[in-house]
Simulated scan of single mutants.
Amino acid sequence: MNTSAHGASFGLDKDTLTDIAQQRMARSLVFPQWSTREKVAATCRILFEHGHDSGLAGQITARGEQAGTYVTQRLGLGFDEIEVDNLLLVDQDLEVIEGDGMANPANRFHSWIYRARPDVQCIVHTHPMHVCALSITGTPLQVAQMDACMLYDDVAFLAAWPGVPVGNSEGEIITRTLGSKRAAVLAHHGLVVACRSVEEACVVAIQCERAARMQLLAAPAGPINALDPVLAREAHDWILHGQRIEAAFHYFARRAARSQAQR
């Protein structure tokens, strides 16, 4: 290995270089210390900017400090109208603990996911155009490009629409379909994302819509070539590294803030 002052890293293997890069990110990347409510409100505005709005459809939730509670938006407001002050804190039965108004009744399936997945801290459910377009073809999301590798082997597909998700049966079906994965495309419906943090859920949701758009654009050109599973898994883990995800989230938040300030 070259040990000179310059070019010392040229003889290192990829695993070592990956470790070095992650150590540097841990030291160098500094982020604002936002509350859960601030992150949820920012996620609503970010996803609005990325085409996830569909009128009043869709919900974003994050676990509250007290077990069995979560923060969500008030029914009647669009994603672009969400602020910290108009968010609700509700319990598993959607009874409002803090705030004015009511939660979307479709939040019921979130409660089922939270009960089954203690690792999940945030759930995003939206109806973005390209995911919805893909969902009506009966075709699962195919991950075949580097940026989308954060989704590799991590997106389930619910092939049969169970109807409006306000009942307990829909909660059971969607939770079972999701399993241990981070996301699921729901046929004739939309997208659900369940992740370890608000930041991760936001970034994964953005990438799901982008990957669906890419797949629909590529389909007329010919068959989609599959990725090497080993390389795809390597990219999956690299892109989902906590520091990278948080950096991406705050970039999207800054971009959304600039866009909304110009209106």
Rank of each mutant, 00 (worst) to 15 (best):
E234I: 06
T177P: 05
L186C: 08
N86P: 03
Q207N: 07
R176T: 01
A183N: 08
M1S: 09
I113W: 00
Q207S: 05
I60A: 00
W238P: 00
L56C: 14
H250M: 05
T3L: 07
C195V: 04
V198G: 02
Q145N: 10
V90L: 09
H6T: 13
D53E: 15
A116N: 08
R74P: 00
C208T: 01
A219V: 09
L216D: 01
M129Q: 15
V204L: 13
P220F: 11
Q262K: 08
L227M: 12
I123Q: 08
H130I: 02
F79N: 03
F48P: 02
Q22R: 14
A106M: 11
V30Y: 04
G99I: 06
M214T: 08
A103G: 04
A57W: 10
R37Q: 14
Y114G: 05
E246T: 15
E95N: 14
T139A: 07
G68E: 01
R117D: 03
V192M: 09
Q262M: 12
G99R: 09
H189V: 09
R45F: 05
L56V: 15
T175E: 11
Y114W: 04
Q142L: 13
R117V: 04
V230D: 12
A148E: 15
A8G: 13
I20F: 12
V90F: 09
D53F: 13
Q243R: 13
W112N: 03
G222C: 03
V164F: 15
C44Y: 15
R244Y: 05
A212W: 08
A159Y: 02
Q262S: 12
A148K: 00
D153I: 00
L47P: 04
D237Q: 12
